[in-house]
């Protein structure tokens, strides 16, 4: 019993926090009709920013939790800015969403490498100590409560507020929505901003809580793991937070379960195989017309001026 408790409080919490936040952010962005294939790049980028911010802030403010918390907040804001640029360009340019998404994904990888290495460069010269978030029972409990709160807030945002109605509407039928006077680009800009905050928080916690450090390529593919969770929860915030418990556990456990009898090399790939399997299963489930349905404009180019 205490082992189970220990698992949830200590081992799972950091991973759950990182993946769930990124998955919730993805839900908001994709509900607005923007295909978020840049998520992995953004996740890499935000985990690098978190590290570098933490190093720089620790140098300025001295080591301590304050620097870490500010680094988390700054990372979220930075990611939000990049993400809003992404969703805006995706809407304003008549270029396929696949092309724009790939561009930002690679740009995120590359920029992430540069940003993280700047932090490491500073570290190699200054040797500042970063106060990474520790794992305590109480800390984890607070984190779980906050995560549930974030999930509920995301739900309220999408389904109870006018902004959420706008976001879902531009994800369904941007042409009609623009006819009633709503600016599609602005709405998607806001969706990118809000979703980006969550993805950035996820990336920051990945570096500053789950890993506690940074190395080249950190976060690579973990953005996709979050993406799969988001799909598995049908981009519906409450469901996303719920299924994330299961998938985060899988991602954490699978590479280490030797009892599965899998060779170590293969078991490292198991989370990826699981993610693909999840996306397949979810796509197979019929759900047209329901609240769980895929946004109809998802991935489609949006042209503003056209003759009806």
């Amino acid at each position: 019993m205490s082992e189970v408790l220990n698992w949830f409080t200590v081992a799972l919490a950091p991973a759950y926090a990182a993946y769930t936040l990124a998955a919730l952010g993805n839900a908001v962005i994709e509900r607005s009709g923007v295909l978020n294939i840049a998520i992995d790049g953004f996740f890499v980028l935000s985990s690098a920013f978190a590290y570098t911010y933490a190093i720089l802030l620790s140098q300025v403010l001295g080591s301590g939790p304050l620097a870490t918390y500010i680094a988390i907040a700054l990372t979220a804001l930075t990611t939000a800015v990049f993400y809003s640029l992404f969703t805006t360009l995706n809407t304003a340019l008549p270029v396929s969403q696949g092309a724009v998404g790939l561009s930002f994904m690679f740009a995120g990888y590359g920029l992430g490498a540069v940003v993280g290495n700047i932090g490491r460069l500073v570290f190699s010269i200054q040797r500042v100590r970063v106060d990474y978030l520790g794992v305590t029972g109480w800390g984890s409990a607070v984190a779980y409560v906050l995560l549930v709160a974030v999930a509920i807030l995301t739900h309220l945002l999408l389904y109870r507020l006018r902004l959420g109605v706008l976001i879902r509407a531009v994800g369904e039928d941007p042409r009609v929505v623009s006819q009633v006077g709503v600016n599609v680009t602005h709405t998607r800009f806001l969706a990118g901003l809000i979703g980006g905050l969550a993805v950035g928080l996820g990336g920051a916690l990945f570096t500053l809580w789950r890993i506690g450090g940074w190395s080249q390529g950190q976060g690579l593919n973990h953005g996709w793991l979050a993406y799969a969770i988001s799909i598995a929860g049908w981009r519906y915030p409450l469901l996303v937070a719920l299924v994330s418990v299961f998938f985060s556990s899988l991602y954490v456990l699978l590479p280490h379960i030797q009892r599965l009898g899998l060779p170590i090399e293969i078991s490292m790939a198991v989370p990826y195989i699981v993610s693909v399997a999840v996306m397949v299963l979810v796509s197979l489930a019929p759900r047209r017309g329901s609240i769980l349905a895929e946004p109809r404009a998802l991935g489609r180019e949006y042209f503003r001026e056209e003759r009806a």
């Binding site: 790049g41 360009l89 340019l93 008549p94 270029v95 092309a99 724009v100 790939l102 561009s103 930002f104 994904m105 690679f106 740009a107 995120g108 990888y109 590359g110 920029l111 490498a113 540069v114 993280g116 290495n117 490491r120 460069l121 190699s124 080249q216």
Partner: peptide, 30 residues
Amino acid sequence: LPPGISAYAISLILMGVTLVVYSIFRVLRD
């Protein structure tokens, strides 16, 4: 430099930036 700022990182950045710029140019052309 720390070992990280590698050819890998440089080519990734180039890739991303080129793709974004290319997309914008295509739009301006079309």
